[in-house]
């Protein structure tokens, strides 16, 4: 009977280790801990040029992640890119005149949208559009040499 107890014990340890590994993949390796999940609301913003912004790129305020890019479309009448941002509903008090800019995290990092709250009394709600936007800096035009490395990495 001692033998079968040993088997059961080792199987228990194995399954526990496997579960722990899955849990760690979720918590430690991926971004579950700072994942935006649960309730969100969507606002849109139009940019002349979004540069290298992608769906799922982070949205931050004062450097704190509050949401992510949900969709990127092109408005063929206004000749602008329309970006849908999905914001965690915990952060629901951005004034109407909040501005949105596309920045790059570091020289080689990914691009993200930074929101900068204004001073208005009314807040942005579901479906509203951010009026003040600043397009991505196209580094290509500014820094000649970096772009090749950057392009290679983005691929």
């Amino acid at each position: 009977m001692g033998h079968s107890r040993l088997i059961e014990l080792s199987v228990g340890l194995f399954v526990a280790a496997g579960m722990a590994a899955l849990f760690m993949l979720a918590m430690q390796v991926s971004n579950l801990s700072n994942n935006i999940s649960g309730d969100t609301y969507a606002i849109t913003a139009a940019f002349e040029n979004i540069g290298g912004l992608k769906v799922r790129s982070p949205v931050t305020v004062s450097g704190v992640r509050v949401g992510r890019v949900d969709a990127i479309d092109y408005d063929s009448r206004a000749f602008e890119a329309v970006v849908t941002l999905s914001i965690d509903s915990r952060y629901n008090s951005f004034p109407e005149d909040t501005s949105a800019s596309i920045f790059t995290s570091g020289l080689l990092g990914e691009q993200y949208i930074a929101l900068e709250p204004g001073g208005s009394e009314t807040n942005l709600t579901e479906g509203d559009r951010v009026q003040l936007t600043q397009s991505a800096l196209v580094i290509e035009q500014l820094v000649g040499q970096f772009l090749y490395n950057q392009a290679g990495k983005q691929q």
């Binding site: 390796v29 991926s30 971004n31 982070p58 990914e110």
Partner: peptide
């Protein structure tokens, strides 16, 4: 960097 890039 890992946590920022690896998506659940």
């Amino acid at each position: 960097q890992m946590q920022a890039k690896v998506d659940l």
